[in-house]
Simulated assay, not measured.
Amino acid sequence: MKKVLITTVIVVLGLSNVNAQEIKFGAKAGVNVAYISGDNIEDIDPITDFNFGFLAEISISEKFSFQPELMYSGQGSEVNLKYLNIPLMGKYYMTKGLSLEAGPQIGFLLSAKNDDTDVKDVFNTIDLGLNFGVGYKLNNGLNFGARYNLGLSDINDVDDVSDKNRNEVFQLSVGYFFF
C-alpha cells in the first residue's frame, strides 16, 4: 500500500510539471449508496454510508483537468466494508463549472465486519473499479459531485467458492477547493 501511495504522489507531482496551468487542492465529503452485485446476491439491501477525503485538480487546458483523490469510503451491504480509495479522474468541462468525469480507481480494504464480527480474511484486500460522474464547481471553490463506481474485481477471497461479487457505489458529495 505504501508503494501505491508513493507512486500516486509521484504521478501527481510529475503531472503538475507538464504544462499545468493551475493546481487546486481541496477536501470533500458525501453520502454513499452501496451494494454488492454478482452471484447469489438476492434480497440484499443496499447500505447508506459516507465518504470523505482530499483531492487535487490539475488543469491541463481550459476544457480538461486531472483530479487524483484520496478517499475513505463505506461500502458493502450486510457486510460493512471500509476502503481507502484512490480515484484518478479525468475531467472534461462542458461549460464553465460543469464537468463530466471518468477514471479508474484502486481501493484498499481497511476493514470488513458482519455485525461486530471481523470478516476481513474472506475479502480481497485490493478492489479495482471504474468511476463515471458529473461535477459542478463554483467560482468560490465550492463544488458538488455525483458519481457511480462500477467494481471490476471480485471482492471474495474464499477458497472453494466460485461466486464472483463486486462493489457498486453511487456517491453524492460536496467539497471545497482551498487554494
Rank of each mutant, 00 (worst) to 15 (best):
166 R>E: 13
168 E>V: 12
141 G>T: 01
39 D>R: 11
119 V>W: 11
120 K>R: 13
144 F>G: 04
177 F>Y: 14
49 D>M: 12
167 N>P: 00
77 S>P: 01
1 M>D: 06
62 E>I: 08
176 Y>A: 10
30 G>T: 01
100 L>A: 14
75 Q>M: 12
76 G>V: 06
140 N>D: 10
55 L>H: 10
66 F>I: 13
45 D>T: 09
179 F>C: 06
122 V>A: 05
161 V>Q: 05
24 K>L: 13
145 G>A: 12
34 A>P: 02
94 M>V: 15
78 E>C: 04
155 I>S: 06
55 L>P: 07
25 F>R: 03
108 F>I: 03
7 T>D: 01
30 G>K: 03
119 V>G: 00
125 T>V: 11
170 F>W: 06
18 V>F: 15
21 Q>K: 14
18 V>L: 15
15 L>I: 08
87 P>D: 05
60 I>Q: 14
56 A>D: 04
101 E>P: 08
51 N>C: 08
133 G>E: 00
4 V>G: 02
54 F>S: 07
83 Y>I: 00
59 S>D: 14
50 F>G: 04
21 Q>N: 13
10 I>S: 07
26 G>T: 01
56 A>Q: 01
89 M>F: 10
30 G>I: 03
4 V>Q: 05
34 A>M: 01
7 T>L: 13
124 N>H: 07
18 V>A: 15
90 G>Q: 11
44 I>R: 15
108 F>N: 03
107 G>E: 02
75 Q>Y: 03
102 A>T: 12
91 K>T: 06
167 N>L: 08
35 Y>A: 15
165 N>Y: 11
151 G>A: 06
109 L>R: 07
115 D>F: 05
167 N>Y: 01
24 K>A: 11
163 D>H: 04
54 F>N: 05
118 D>K: 07
177 F>A: 08
17 N>H: 14
19 N>R: 14
113 K>D: 09
72 Y>D: 02
64 F>P: 09
17 N>D: 13
38 G>N: 05
76 G>N: 04
154 D>L: 05
154 D>H: 06
122 V>S: 03
59 S>M: 15
62 E>Q: 12
48 T>L: 14
9 V>T: 09
150 L>G: 04
115 D>A: 08
109 L>E: 01
